[in-house]
Protein backbone atom coordinates (compact mmCIF):
# COMPACT_ATOMS: atom_id res chain seq x y z
CA UNK A 1 0.00 0.00 0.00
CA UNK A 2 1.05 3.60 -0.57
CA UNK A 3 1.02 6.07 2.29
CA UNK A 4 2.70 9.46 2.50
CA UNK A 5 3.99 10.22 5.98
CA UNK A 6 4.52 13.80 7.14
CA UNK A 7 6.71 13.38 10.19
CA UNK A 8 7.81 16.02 12.70
CA UNK A 9 11.55 16.33 13.13
CA UNK A 10 13.22 18.56 15.68
CA UNK A 11 16.85 18.23 16.76
CA UNK A 12 16.37 19.20 20.38
CA UNK A 13 14.10 20.96 22.83
CA UNK A 14 15.24 24.42 21.76
CA UNK A 15 15.62 23.88 18.03
CA UNK A 16 13.04 24.73 15.40
CA UNK A 17 11.22 21.73 14.01
CA UNK A 18 9.76 20.90 10.62
CA UNK A 19 7.79 18.22 8.84
CA UNK A 20 9.62 15.84 6.53
CA UNK A 21 7.77 13.72 3.97
CA UNK A 22 8.32 10.05 3.25
CA UNK A 23 6.36 7.81 0.92
CA UNK A 24 8.11 4.47 1.43
CA UNK A 25 7.79 1.51 -0.91
CA UNK A 26 6.76 -1.86 0.44
CA UNK A 27 4.25 -0.95 3.16
CA UNK A 28 1.85 -3.77 3.99
CA UNK A 29 -1.55 -3.63 5.72
CA UNK A 30 -0.37 -6.17 8.33
CA UNK A 31 2.49 -3.91 9.43
CA UNK A 32 2.09 -2.20 12.75
CA UNK A 33 2.39 1.58 12.69
CA UNK A 34 5.77 1.41 14.40
CA UNK A 35 6.98 -1.20 11.92
CA UNK A 36 6.05 1.29 9.21
CA UNK A 37 8.19 3.91 11.01
CA UNK A 38 11.03 1.35 11.24
CA UNK A 39 10.63 0.91 7.52
CA UNK A 40 10.88 4.67 6.93
CA UNK A 41 13.97 4.79 9.13
CA UNK A 42 15.65 1.94 7.31
CA UNK A 43 15.36 3.78 4.02
CA UNK A 44 16.60 7.01 5.64
CA UNK A 45 19.64 5.28 7.13
CA UNK A 46 20.56 3.54 3.90
CA UNK A 47 20.40 6.87 2.10
CA UNK A 48 22.76 8.44 4.61
CA UNK A 49 20.27 10.31 6.83
CA UNK A 50 19.87 9.94 10.56
CA UNK A 51 16.95 7.93 11.93
CA UNK A 52 13.80 9.64 13.14
CA UNK A 53 13.74 9.24 16.92
CA UNK A 54 10.68 7.78 18.58
CA UNK A 55 10.07 5.97 21.86
CA UNK A 56 8.78 2.41 21.90
CA UNK A 57 9.47 -0.82 23.71
CA UNK A 58 7.03 -3.66 24.36
CA UNK A 59 5.02 -3.17 21.17
CA UNK A 60 2.07 -4.90 22.74
CA UNK A 61 0.27 -1.95 24.25
CA UNK A 62 1.20 -2.31 27.91
CA UNK A 63 4.49 -0.52 28.68
CA UNK A 64 3.23 2.95 27.74
CA UNK A 65 6.53 3.92 26.12
CA UNK A 66 5.22 4.65 22.64
CA UNK A 67 2.85 7.36 21.63
CA UNK A 68 2.65 9.89 18.84
CA UNK A 69 -0.09 12.11 17.52
CA UNK A 70 -1.38 10.72 14.24
CA UNK A 71 -3.52 12.98 12.08
CA UNK A 72 -4.25 15.11 15.11
CA UNK A 73 -5.19 12.26 17.45
CA UNK A 74 -3.02 10.86 20.21
CA UNK A 75 -2.28 7.21 19.32
CA UNK A 76 -4.19 7.57 16.05
CA UNK A 77 -7.65 6.82 14.76
CA UNK A 78 -8.66 3.71 16.73
CA UNK A 79 -10.26 3.87 20.16
CA UNK A 80 -8.57 2.07 23.04
CA UNK A 81 -5.41 1.43 21.05
CA UNK A 82 -1.80 2.45 21.60
CA UNK A 83 0.35 3.52 18.67
CA UNK A 84 2.16 0.18 18.66
CA UNK A 85 -1.12 -1.73 18.40
CA UNK A 86 -2.32 0.32 15.46
CA UNK A 87 -1.83 -1.44 12.12
CA UNK A 88 -1.57 -0.01 8.64
CA UNK A 89 -4.82 -1.71 7.70
CA UNK A 90 -6.51 1.15 9.57
CA UNK A 91 -5.40 3.50 6.77
CA UNK A 92 -6.39 3.62 3.12
CA UNK A 93 -4.16 3.49 0.11
CA UNK A 94 -3.06 7.00 -0.80
CA UNK A 95 -3.60 8.50 2.68
CA UNK A 96 -1.49 11.38 3.94
CA UNK A 97 -0.56 10.60 7.54
CA UNK A 98 0.79 13.37 9.77
CA UNK A 99 2.89 12.24 12.72
CA UNK A 100 3.77 14.57 15.59
CA UNK A 101 5.09 14.17 19.13
CA UNK A 102 2.89 14.35 22.22
CA UNK A 103 3.01 18.10 22.73
CA UNK A 104 2.66 19.72 26.16
CA UNK A 105 4.55 22.27 28.19
CA UNK A 106 5.31 19.54 30.73
CA UNK A 107 6.59 17.20 27.97
CA UNK A 108 9.60 18.94 26.41
CA UNK A 109 10.71 17.44 23.10
CA UNK A 110 13.94 15.45 23.37
CA UNK A 111 14.22 14.87 19.66
CA UNK A 112 11.67 14.39 16.86
CA UNK A 113 8.83 12.27 18.25
CA UNK A 114 10.56 11.54 21.56
CA UNK A 115 9.42 13.64 24.52
CA UNK A 116 10.41 13.83 28.17
CA UNK A 117 7.49 12.61 30.30
CA UNK A 118 9.39 12.50 33.57
CA UNK A 119 6.92 15.08 34.89
CA UNK A 120 4.39 12.24 35.17
CA UNK A 121 6.85 10.27 37.30
CA UNK A 122 7.38 13.24 39.57
CA UNK A 123 3.63 13.48 40.12
CA UNK A 124 3.53 9.77 41.00
CA UNK A 125 6.45 10.23 43.38
CA UNK A 126 4.50 12.87 45.29
CA UNK A 127 2.64 10.38 47.40
CA UNK A 128 1.29 8.03 44.72
CA UNK A 129 1.94 5.00 46.87
CA UNK A 130 0.89 3.17 50.02
CA UNK A 131 3.38 3.93 52.79
CA UNK A 132 4.16 0.38 53.75
CA UNK A 133 7.55 -1.23 53.93
CA UNK A 134 8.16 -4.46 52.09
CA UNK A 135 7.21 -7.35 54.39
CA UNK A 136 5.30 -5.07 56.78
CA UNK A 137 2.18 -6.78 55.54
CA UNK A 138 -0.64 -8.70 57.15
CA UNK A 139 -1.85 -12.04 55.76
CA UNK A 140 -3.22 -11.22 52.31
CA UNK A 141 -6.74 -12.52 52.91
CA UNK A 142 -7.05 -10.54 56.13
CA UNK A 143 -7.65 -7.48 53.94
CA UNK A 144 -10.97 -8.24 52.31
CA UNK A 145 -11.76 -6.16 49.28
CA UNK A 146 -15.23 -6.27 47.74
CA UNK A 147 -15.06 -7.64 44.24
CA UNK A 148 -16.50 -4.46 42.72
CA UNK A 149 -13.91 -2.34 44.55
CA UNK A 150 -11.07 -4.57 43.38
CA UNK A 151 -12.45 -4.29 39.88
CA UNK A 152 -12.73 -0.50 40.08
CA UNK A 153 -9.21 -0.26 41.50
CA UNK A 154 -7.94 -2.46 38.69
CA UNK A 155 -9.69 -0.40 36.02
CA UNK A 156 -8.05 2.77 37.34
CA UNK A 157 -4.69 1.04 37.83
CA UNK A 158 -4.69 -0.16 34.23
CA UNK A 159 -3.35 3.29 33.24
CA UNK A 160 -0.11 2.73 31.33
CA UNK A 161 1.27 6.24 31.88
CA UNK A 162 1.65 6.97 28.17
CA UNK A 163 0.58 10.61 28.41
CA UNK A 164 -2.02 10.49 25.62
CA UNK A 165 -4.47 12.19 28.00
CA UNK A 166 -2.10 15.14 28.33
CA UNK A 167 -1.35 15.28 24.62
CA UNK A 168 -5.03 15.30 23.68
CA UNK A 169 -6.04 17.94 26.22
CA UNK A 170 -6.21 21.52 24.99
CA UNK A 171 -4.91 22.60 28.39
CA UNK A 172 -2.29 19.85 28.54
CA UNK A 173 -3.74 18.75 31.87
CA UNK A 174 -2.68 15.52 33.57
CA UNK A 175 -5.93 15.16 35.48
CA UNK A 176 -6.92 11.80 34.04
CA UNK A 177 -3.50 10.32 34.79
CA UNK A 178 -3.47 11.65 38.35
CA UNK A 179 -7.15 10.92 38.94
CA UNK A 180 -6.57 7.33 37.89
CA UNK A 181 -3.69 6.82 40.32
CA UNK A 182 -5.68 8.39 43.13
CA UNK A 183 -8.76 6.28 42.35
CA UNK A 184 -6.72 3.08 42.22
CA UNK A 185 -5.39 3.62 45.73
CA UNK A 186 -8.47 5.18 47.30
CA UNK A 187 -10.70 2.28 46.21
CA UNK A 188 -8.67 -0.13 48.34
CA UNK A 189 -8.74 -0.26 52.13
CA UNK A 190 -4.94 -0.26 52.23
CA UNK A 191 -4.79 2.95 50.17
CA UNK A 192 -7.59 4.89 51.84
CA UNK A 193 -5.61 5.72 54.96
CA UNK A 194 -3.33 8.31 53.36
CA UNK A 195 -5.75 9.57 50.78
CA UNK A 196 -6.12 13.09 52.12
CA UNK A 197 -2.43 13.87 52.07
CA UNK A 198 -1.94 12.01 48.80
CA UNK A 199 -4.55 13.94 46.87
CA UNK A 200 -3.19 17.30 48.02
CA UNK A 201 0.39 16.40 47.22
CA UNK A 202 -0.31 14.93 43.81
CA UNK A 203 -2.58 17.76 42.68
CA UNK A 204 -0.02 20.33 43.76
CA UNK A 205 2.71 18.38 41.96
CA UNK A 206 0.66 18.59 38.73
CA UNK A 207 0.56 22.35 39.04
CA UNK A 208 4.26 22.54 39.81
CA UNK A 209 5.14 20.49 36.73
CA UNK A 210 3.31 22.89 34.44
CA UNK A 211 0.31 20.77 33.53
CA UNK A 212 -2.78 22.85 32.75
CA UNK A 213 -6.13 22.79 34.48
CA UNK A 214 -8.96 20.49 33.53
CA UNK A 215 -11.92 22.10 31.81
CA UNK A 216 -13.92 18.90 31.44
CA UNK A 217 -13.83 18.42 27.68
CA UNK A 218 -13.13 14.71 28.27
CA UNK A 219 -10.87 14.57 25.24
CA UNK A 220 -8.53 12.59 27.49
CA UNK A 221 -11.03 9.77 27.92
CA UNK A 222 -11.51 9.54 24.17
CA UNK A 223 -7.75 9.22 23.62
CA UNK A 224 -6.99 6.88 26.53
CA UNK A 225 -5.83 3.49 25.24
CA UNK A 226 -6.99 1.91 28.51
CA UNK A 227 -10.43 3.58 28.38
CA UNK A 228 -10.06 5.16 31.78
CA UNK A 229 -13.16 7.11 32.71
CA UNK A 230 -13.10 10.90 33.06
CA UNK A 231 -15.35 10.44 36.09
CA UNK A 232 -12.16 9.80 38.00
CA UNK A 233 -11.26 13.45 37.47
CA UNK A 234 -14.46 14.60 39.15
CA UNK A 235 -13.67 12.28 41.98
CA UNK A 236 -10.17 13.68 42.34
CA UNK A 237 -11.54 17.22 42.38
CA UNK A 238 -14.07 16.36 45.07
CA UNK A 239 -11.42 14.62 47.15
CA UNK A 240 -9.06 17.55 46.70
CA UNK A 241 -11.64 20.13 47.80
CA UNK A 242 -12.63 18.00 50.75
CA UNK A 243 -8.97 17.56 51.73
CA UNK A 244 -8.39 21.29 51.52
CA UNK A 245 -11.43 21.94 53.71
CA UNK A 246 -10.35 19.33 56.23
CA UNK A 247 -6.84 20.71 56.34
CA UNK A 248 -7.91 24.29 57.14
CA UNK A 249 -6.06 25.26 60.26
CA UNK A 250 -4.12 22.00 60.63
CA UNK A 251 -1.24 20.26 59.02
CA UNK A 252 -1.81 17.20 56.86
CA UNK A 253 1.49 15.56 57.68
Amino acid sequence: MKITFRIWMQDGPNSAGEFVEHAPEGLAPDMSFLEALDHVNESRILSGQRAIEFDHDCREGICGTCGVVINGRAHGPLAATTTCQLHMRSFSDGDLVTVEPFRARAFPVIRDLKVDRSSLDRVARSGGYVSTNIRAAPEANSILVPRHAARAAFDAASCIGCGACVASCKNAAASLYTGAKLAHLSELPQGKIENTLRVVRMVEAMDREGFGSCTNTEACEAACPQEISAHLIARMNRQYNWARLKSLGRKLT
Binding site: A137, E139, I143, A150, A153, F154
Partner: peptide, 19 residues
Protein backbone atom coordinates in the same frame (compact mmCIF):
# COMPACT_ATOMS: atom_id res chain seq x y z
CA UNK B 1 1.33 -12.12 48.05
CA UNK B 2 0.94 -10.42 51.43
CA UNK B 3 3.41 -7.71 50.44
CA UNK B 4 1.78 -7.11 47.06
CA UNK B 5 -1.69 -6.81 48.56
CA UNK B 6 -0.41 -4.33 51.14
CA UNK B 7 1.05 -2.23 48.32
CA UNK B 8 -2.37 -2.06 46.68
CA UNK B 9 -1.98 -4.56 43.86
CA UNK B 10 -5.57 -5.10 42.66
CA UNK B 11 -5.59 -8.88 42.33
CA UNK B 12 -8.76 -10.62 41.16
CA UNK B 13 -11.16 -11.42 44.01
CA UNK B 14 -14.14 -13.58 44.78
CA UNK B 15 -17.50 -12.10 45.81
CA UNK B 16 -16.67 -12.55 49.47
CA UNK B 17 -13.65 -10.28 49.05
CA UNK B 18 -10.97 -12.97 49.24
CA UNK B 19 -8.30 -13.47 46.60
Amino acid sequence: IDTCVAQGVPFAREYGGVL
